[in-house]
Design a protein around this nucleic acid. Structure first.
Lengths: 216, 216
DNA sequence: CCGACCATGTAATATGTTACATGATTGT
DNA sequence: ACAATCATGTAACATATTACATGGTCGG
């Protein structure tokens, strides 16, 4: 399971609790894998049962129990094995594109909303990635710095940093690309509306007559 | 379910069998949703039970039975409703990036294989998308042309074509971007190996001494 | 007559989401 | 004391993958 590998990979950069992982995955948009806590806790148990991680119970305050997991040598070996296999590419599942290509009924308001949502989504993502990349580049990311400090050679230190720069900067540019695309689509829409004199129609759906091919 | 919407959307461009859908989804890389036949057939039954599609049994040759589905008005309405909602963005699940950031153990061969796999994957995808876009732009795609022909107004015809141009050309550029990224990563690797005099080491894993932080 | 492809299904398993459930800590 | 957040779990349901299963058609 890739979720297992995401967990192991993250624990390979330092110990952490299930809750830490949850936060990485749902709050940190900067992360390449997402999962709900209901999926994470059971996996941690199983990884421990398989000997890939070990845990230690910690009590916060008087009663709050917290379990901190640490990767084992077997776990480290599993990460190494998994990362040395080439990436796999699951089938595309893009509800955004699907909605776009089948939403060609002439509802211009919906199309506009579509592109604006896309733009907004990737602008947020860009911002959040930009912040992460800034932290990374200014060498302020604690877990990554730890990993660099632990590296045995200059070459390994460089690889550790470079791998992340490539990954996160690549994603940043992906986000920038999506923003650009959404803006171009919006520009097309603007032009379309101008050409079809739909500048200030407002109120009802645009193209009211032409839409009724099937009945609305 | 988005799979249902993908099926409905596709059937909204003309009737087709389950097998036709299977081919769209696994052979045609040009498609924005992927699903196995084992998932498609049961969904078709359910969509029919819900009255969103209807089917007709056709016999090919003497015995081979084939079921051709046609979207109903209720189905068309469902597509319209679904496409007018803004897109949603599921959590990222990118095993490629995950492998990259946690695969920083100094196995340069694995890193190279990683980038080459990425490059290869997106070059194939680009090619296949390019073909599709060419067919689209030269107005040779039968289903899309049918849909354009059925559109009630010039404005709707334009939207039908433009939505697909935006979607597919956008994906084409995505693929081109990934190719560019992979090439840059490979260039970094080349440079890294040059700087660390690992030009012609061959045989064993690169960086043999420095890797042994944990064992191996 | 044989291989490639057409055509459709079920079952078991794996993975992911949403809802339900509980209680502690920390800062204000 | 109250809210936000820490912290961990289970159950039900939805979705997706892999394996198992069967048989027909068509062209060479």
């Amino acid at each position: 399971m890739s979720l297992d590998n995401a967990i192991l990979g993250w624990l390979s950069t330092g110990p952490g609790s299930g809750y830490d992982l949850v936060r990485q995955m749902d709050l940190g948009l900067n992360w390449f894998w997402g999962a709900a806590h209901s999926q994470i806790y059971p996996r941690l148990k199983e990884l421990e049962a398989r000997g890939l991680i070990s845990s230690e119970q910690i009590t916060v305050g008087t009663k709050l129990e917290k379990r901190v997991y640490t990767i084992t040598d077997a776990g480290r070996e599993a990460v190494r094995k998994w990362t040395s296999e080439p990436p796999t590419y699951p089938p595309n599942r893009d509800n955004e594109r699907l909605r776009l290509i089948f939403g060609d009924h002439g509802d211009l308001k919906a199309m506009r909303r579509h592109f604006e949502t896309h733009l907004d989504h990737y602008e947020r993502r860009r911002e959040s990635l930009q912040e992460f990349v800034d932290v990374l580049t200014s060498r302020q990311h604690p877990r990554i710095e730890q990993r660099i400090a632990a590296a045995m050679s200059e070459a390994l230190k460089e690889i550790t940093l470079a791998a992340r720069e490539m990954a996160y900067r690549g994603d940043l540019r992906r986000a920038e690309f999506e923003i650009e695309w959404a803006k171009e689509c919006l520009a097309w829409l603007d032009d379309f509306e101008r050409r079809h004199d739909l500048g200030e129609t407002s109120g009802t759906d645009e193209l009211p007559a032409s839409v009724s091919a099937t009945g609305t």
